[in-house]
């Protein structure tokens, strides 16, 4: 799980072009939106594409998004639960 979290951090930084952020700066339990990384709705779309592109996962129910994208850890858990880690 830790290895997946670290991999995910790198992919998020690359996908969202967070040039000023290093993987170590991202707290895996901190909120991705609002506080924490301070991401917005465009970033949410980028993260959906990230899951599809790198892990072959399509989010079927948009209502699940809020829970999945709560933090890096919840994203990693979702990937693991889908058997794609």
């Amino acid at each position: 799980m830790d290895a997946l979290i670290e991999k995910l951090k790198g992919q998020i930084i690359e996908q969202l072009n967070l040039a000023e952020v290093k993987p170590a700066d991202i707290n895996p339990d901190a909120p991705l939106f609002g506080d924490g990384l301070g991401l917005d709705s465009i970033d949410a779309l980028e993260l959906i594409v990230l899951l599809e592109k790198h892990y072959g996962i399509k989010i079927q129910n948009p209502a699940d998004g809020k829970k999945i994208f709560e933090s890096v850890r919840t994203m990693a858990q979702f990937i693991k639960d889908q058997g794609k880690s």
């Binding site: 072009n17 465009i42 779309l45 980028e46 594409v49 599809e52 592109k53």
Partner: peptide, 13 residues
């Protein structure tokens, strides 16, 4: 490059 898949919004916007 992605065969019309995985299109992200940022560069389009």
């Amino acid at each position: 490059n992605n065969d019309e898949q995985f299109l992200t919004p940022t560069s389009f916007i």
